[in-house]
Design a protein around this nucleic acid. Structure first.
Length: 229
DNA sequence: ACCCAGGTGGCCC
DNA sequence: GGGCCACATGGG
């Protein structure tokens, strides 16, 4: 008889399997913001290339990006895709930080979380996931980040019917203690798990969650016949 | 030659 | 408020 999988139990399973992920992969809070924009609908590997380019040009501070030419920013952002709009957006965000907060992130991060979130959402290029990634991974606020992996996973597991961002966020936050470290790990663990196993198309092979959830076993398919086509 | 990746904003109805 | 669509590169 299979026990019902809960949000807390899922966290434990993922944590026990993968261990701490130690996110976000960035040297500074500002780099988290830039990475969060660059990684929108983009593989992180490509984002790394763009971040290396920016650093090589000395473009990993709000001051330098605000001052940089659009052309230089586009060249650096190129490998991450959507490079024209991303270049424009990291420039606008940097300009905003300089103008409104003198480039001081501690200053802006000291604001109440709700107000800060609204302020971030007001910027072009920052939607709910990017805003919450910044709140959690740069500002250290207890905010649960939802992404396409999270939606896919909880829907397949049958944990909730919720589909839209805010509903899913409430779903998780109502069932978990407000703990920055745990929220940090939980999101990173979901990404890790989905990168490997919970793909758009079912992946053949075993999955350590199968024993814990019947919904999950239902989409694990038989090994692919690679001979066809 | 497809499909996919740590989304967002602008339209349209 | 939801359903499309453009945005673009690099890897499988």
């Amino acid at each position: 008889m299979m026990k019902r999988l809960t949000v807390k139990k899922l966290y434990k399973l993922l944590y026990d399997h993968f261990g701490p992920r130690n996110w976000w992969p960035a040297e500074t809070a500002f780099e988290v913001i830039i990475g969060a924009v660059l990684t929108q609908n983009t593989a992180w590997k490509n984002v790394e290339l763009a971040i290396i380019n920016l650093k090589k040009k000395g473009l990993m501070t709000a001051e330098s990006i605000a001052r940089a030419s659009t052309k230089d920013l586009e060249k650096a952002a190129h490998p991450s895709g959507f490079y024209r709009q991303k270049a424009k957006r990291i420039k606008e965000i940097s300009e905003f930080l300089i103008e409104e907060y003198d480039g001081d992130l501690d200053d802006i991060f000291n604001r109440p979380t709700g107000e800060l979130r609204k302020e971030l959402l007001g910027l072009k290029g920052i939607g709910p996931e990017t805003a919450d990634s910044i709140l959690l991974y740069a500002a250290g606020k207890p905010v649960f980040v939802i992404d396409s992996y999270t939606k896919r996973l909880v829907n397949r597991l049958g944990l909730t019917e919720a589909k839209n961002y805010d509903e899913l966020q409430v779903f998780f936050m109502k069932r978990l203690p407000s703990d920055v470290e745990m929220f940090n790990e939980y999101h990173a663990l979901i990404v890790e798990f989905c990168k490997i196993i919970c793909r758009p198309r079912p992946l053949c092979g075993e999955c350590f969650l199968v024993d814990h959830c019947s919904y999950f076993s239902s989409f694990i398919e038989e090994p692919h016949n690679t001979a066809q086509n």
